[in-house]
Amino acid sequence: MKNLLIFSDKDEVLQLLRTQMVQTLVHMSNVKTMVIDSENTLSSYQDQVRTYISGDNQIEQFSEMVMAEIERRQQEDVSDSFIIMIDQLDTFIKASGIKEEDFKTIYEKAPKVGIQLILCTPYSYVMSYDQIPKFIKSNAKQAIVAMRKLTKLFMRNRIKQMNHY
């Protein structure tokens, strides 16, 4: 399994994608699931997933917890499926204080031991010049992208064409 990036330029669309992804995770009874909800937008699902993390104290411990799980899985040769969904990656990065090197290590090693990350974030964060989004852009192999097909420029040109008739 590989990590999955989910992003959109519209908050409403991103919320729909997040909700659909959590609903899918809820129905995966044979998979351990964890939802990290730094903005409490998915709190209605906290009793339905195996682990729900929200609040700064819990989020700050994320990198230590996942690094320990990766190490345990490597030592015990465990590779059962474990999906960690991080909602609002931009807010999570700030709240957790995760170091760039720790994030890269988790991102690269987790899939090798059966841990898949699902990273949900706004388009603006994915396209930012921060080091973590740049790393994700260059290493993401799977993504769900929900963007508007038409741009303002396209619409302006189309309107101009229509006015010539």
Rank of each mutant, 00 (worst) to 15 (best):
K99P: 00
V49N: 01
L119N: 05
K160A: 14
N157R: 02
I115R: 04
I36Y: 05
Q46G: 03
M162V: 12
K152W: 07
A68C: 06
S124K: 11
P111C: 06
M65W: 04
Q20G: 15
K2L: 11
M147A: 15
Y52G: 02
I59R: 00
Q75W: 11
V78L: 15
L25E: 07
Q58N: 13
A95Y: 08
D80M: 05
M21G: 02
V78N: 07
Q75E: 15
D11T: 08
K149L: 14
D47E: 13
V13T: 14
T33E: 09
T24E: 13
E12L: 10
G97S: 02
A146H: 01
I106H: 02
I93A: 11
V145W: 06
F82Q: 07
V78R: 09
M34V: 14
T121N: 08
A140S: 15
L4M: 12
V78C: 03
Q116S: 14
P133F: 04
M85V: 05
E76S: 11
L14E: 10
N139D: 11
D47R: 08
V113P: 00
V145R: 11
S43P: 00
S128N: 06
M85S: 04
D56Y: 08
G97D: 03
K32S: 12
M127W: 01
T121K: 03
Q74F: 13
Y125P: 00
Q116E: 14
M147Y: 14
Y52V: 01
D11R: 05
S79G: 05
K2P: 04
I86N: 04
E64A: 01
